[in-house]
Structures are given as C-alpha cells and as structure tokens.
Computed example of a mutant assay.
Amino acid sequence: MIAAIMQPYLLPYIGYFQLIAAADVFVIYDDVQYMRGGWINRNRILLNGAPHWLTLPVEHSGEVRTQIRDTRYQLTEANLKKLSGQLDAAYRKAPRAAAVRPLLEAILATRDPNVAGFNAAAIGAVRQALGIGTKIVRASEIGRDTSLTGQAAVIDICRRLGADHYVNAAGGVDLYAGEAFAAQGLRLSFIRSQAPPYRQFAEPFVANLSIADVLMFCGPDQLAEQVAAYNLVAA
C-alpha cells in the first residue's frame, strides 16, 4: 500500500492532486504547526495575465504554536464574497467557467470554519471532480505518536496505516533518507510532476497556479492527462 502525506492547502496546484493520485491512502497532516505565509490559507490564480494571491483570512489566537486543526478561518460573508468575486473576475470568461463554477460555489458554501476541515472538504470535492479514488484520512484521526517529528513521524504514520511504500513531494528529497525507511520495511519514492502546459487566455503560460486554474481551462480528457503526468523516482 502506498501512502502520501501533506498539509491541507487551500485549492492547491495540480502537483498536489498528482500526489494524491499516486497513493492508495493520502494523509492530511492537520496536527502539525500552522505556518503563516505558506499555502494553507492561500493560493495563486491568474488575473489579468499574471499570478494573483487568493487568500482566506484566518483568526490568530496569539498562541506561538497553533496546530492546523486548531486554526479557524474568518468565514465572514465579506471574506467569502471577496474570494468569490476574485475567482469570478479572474475566470468568468474561461472556457470551463460555467461547468466549474458550481464546484467552487459548493466549496465556498462550506461553513466549517476549521482550517483543516474546510481545506479537507475542498480537497475531497476536487479529488472527486478529477476522478481520483484515493482514500483520504486526517493525521489527527489515526492515533499517531505526536511526540515524533520529521522523518520519524512519517515512518510512524506509514506503519500505523500498514503502508509499505511512502511517496513524498520532490521538495522533500533532502529531508528523508531511503535507508531509514528501508530499515522499517518501507520503500521511499519522490514524485516528479510533468504536467504539460495548457492553453490559458494568452501566452505566456503561467504554471503551478491553483487547481481552480486547471479546472477552468482543461476539459475532462485534459484533466485526466494532467493528473497522470508524473513519475515516481526511488530514493
């Protein structure tokens, strides 16, 4: 069984969903520290031909170390209206706007202010729209040893799930050692995205935007190609 683990990002890019597709079980890492300025509560969309931040504000408790599962969005009508307006301004003329808008509206209609809950629901909805059948669980639900961090925590999660193969994003190549995984009976691989450019409004192509961008411009066949455009490299 292949496992993959990632923090819950807001409408993440296609590589995130490729990682989900590469696994049999995908773990949403919700019981680790919330980091400001990352991808958890924001992503980028294409507005007027350039990347533009799409952000959903969070409530800051003042705690120095707050876990993602304990962080809450400011789900005010004003914030949700702004987010919806930005998506509409960016993509109202996109070829798939009419087909994709109901999905985005359903995501924004989620009234769970918990960041992990909201993002997990959004990720699950997009996963279904992309035809990915991978099981998704939250790290906080599997009874893991929360005293462990880094590589040791990942190995612990894999063992608790019964996985024998762990796949990580390519950015973690310097964080994990194949020998440490092998000592626990685990294979370690890294995913390399090869998602091809697709036609946006105009040239040049802007890569690695939110999955909302991919959905707005790619039909079903192209979406399938985008999801499948990766390979696994052994550690």
Score class of each variant (00 low, 15 high):
Ile2Thr: 15
Ala4Ile: 03
Ile5Thr: 03
Ile5His: 04
Ile5Asn: 07
Ile5Gln: 03
Met6Leu: 11
Gln7Thr: 05
Tyr9Met: 06
Pro12Leu: 07
Pro12Cys: 08
Tyr13Trp: 15
Tyr16Phe: 04
Tyr16Glu: 02
Ala22Val: 11
Ala22Ile: 11
Ala23Asp: 03
Ala23Tyr: 04
Asp30Leu: 08
Asp31Leu: 09
Val32His: 03
Gln33Lys: 06
Tyr34Ala: 02
Met35Cys: 07
Ile40Gly: 01
Asn41Arg: 05
Asn43Pro: 13
Arg44Ser: 14
Arg44His: 10
Leu46Val: 09
Leu46His: 09
Gly49His: 04
Ala50Thr: 12
Thr55Ala: 12
Leu56Ile: 11
Val58Asn: 07
Glu59Phe: 07
His60Ile: 13
Val64Gly: 13
Val64Pro: 12
Arg65Ser: 15
Thr66Lys: 14
Thr66Glu: 08
Gln67Arg: 12
Arg69Phe: 07
Tyr73Ala: 03
Thr76Gln: 09
Ala78Asn: 13
Leu80Thr: 15
Lys82Pro: 00
Lys82Val: 08
Gln86Met: 06
Ala90Val: 08
Ala94His: 02
Pro95Thr: 05
Pro95Arg: 02
Ala99Asn: 02
Ala99Pro: 01
Val100Met: 02
Leu103Arg: 01
Leu104Met: 13
Leu104Tyr: 02
Leu104Val: 06
Ile107Arg: 01
Ile107Cys: 03
Leu108Gly: 02
Ala109Asn: 07
Ala109Arg: 14
Ala109Val: 07
Asp112Ser: 11
Asp112Pro: 04
Val115Gly: 02
Phe118Ile: 13
Ala122Lys: 05
Ala122Ile: 08
Ile123Val: 15
Gly124Ser: 14
Gly124Lys: 14
Ala125Trp: 00
Val126Met: 05
Val126Ala: 06
Gln128Trp: 00
Ala129Glu: 07
Ile132Asn: 13
Thr134Ile: 10
Val137Ser: 07
Val137Lys: 11
Arg138Cys: 15
Gly143Asp: 00
Gly143Ala: 05
Thr146Trp: 03
Ser147Val: 15
Thr149Gln: 03
Gln151Ala: 14
Ala153Tyr: 00
Ile155Tyr: 03
Ile155Asn: 05
Ile155Arg: 04
Asp156Asn: 10
Ile157His: 01
Cys158His: 04
Leu161Val: 15
Gly162Tyr: 00
Gly162Ser: 01
Ala163Lys: 03
Asp164Lys: 14
Tyr166Ala: 14
Val167Glu: 01
Ala169Val: 07
Ala169Tyr: 01
Gly171Arg: 07
Gly172Val: 10
Gly172Gln: 08
Val173Asp: 06
Asp174Ala: 15
Tyr176Pro: 01
Tyr176Arg: 10
Glu179Lys: 14
Phe181Thr: 10
Leu186Phe: 04
Arg187Leu: 09
Leu188Tyr: 00
Phe190Met: 12
Ile191Glu: 03
Ile191Met: 11
Arg192Val: 14
Ser193Thr: 10
Gln194Leu: 09
Pro196Ser: 08
Tyr198Arg: 05
Ala202Tyr: 00
Ala202Gly: 12
Glu203Gln: 08
Phe205Tyr: 04
Val206Met: 09
Ala207Cys: 09
Asn208Asp: 11
Asn208Ala: 14
Leu209Phe: 05
Asp213Ser: 05
Leu215Trp: 01
Gly219Ser: 10
Pro220Gln: 06
Asp221Phe: 04
Gln222Leu: 10
Gln222Asp: 13
Gln226Cys: 09
Tyr230Ser: 14
Tyr230Met: 11
Asn231Asp: 15
Leu232Gln: 12
Leu232Tyr: 05
